[in-house]
């Protein structure tokens, strides 16, 4: 009981001290600042999205053209790459699964 009272006293003291921080004046920028900030962030997001899509397309085209080249010019290498990919995916999935179920 005494412990509970002590804890409540500490909580009251903390609440009181945090209330005094609330008295600290807040400088709220005007509406035009918020509008400019949002527009600026939206522009940045659009730019990042376009950049990411370009990088994705570039990498995808590079991999696809490499695979098509091996398929028509070096079929044996194509088969080796396919087998290696399957083994890699299977091993990766197994390791991930084992990590998830491993006891802490």
């Amino acid at each position: 009981m005494k412990k509970d009272n002590n804890e409540q006293a500490v909580i009251d003291e903390i609440t009181k001290s945090l209330n005094s921080l609330d008295a600290h004046p807040v400088h709220i920028p005007d509406a035009s600042w918020f509008e400019a900030f949002v527009e600026d962030q939206q522009k940045k997001l659009r730019k990042t999205f376009i950049r990411d899509v370009c990088v994705f397309l570039f990498v995808a085209l590079f991999i696809l053209s490499g695979l098509l080249f091996t398929l028509f010019q070096m079929p044996y290498l194509f088969i080796v790459i396919q087998i290696a990919s399957i083994i890699f995916v299977a091993l990766y999935s197994f390791i991930r699964y084992r990590k998830q179920v491993a006891p802490e």
């Binding site: 609330d22 709220i28 918020f34």
Partner: peptide, 20 residues
């Protein structure tokens, strides 16, 4: 963006005071 600005202007004091 005007709706965003209005939301943020409204919640800025709560956000700032929490972070402080």
């Amino acid at each position: 963006h005007l709706a965003f600005a209005s939301l943020f202007q409204q919640h800025y004091p709560i956000l700032y005071k929490y972070l402080l």
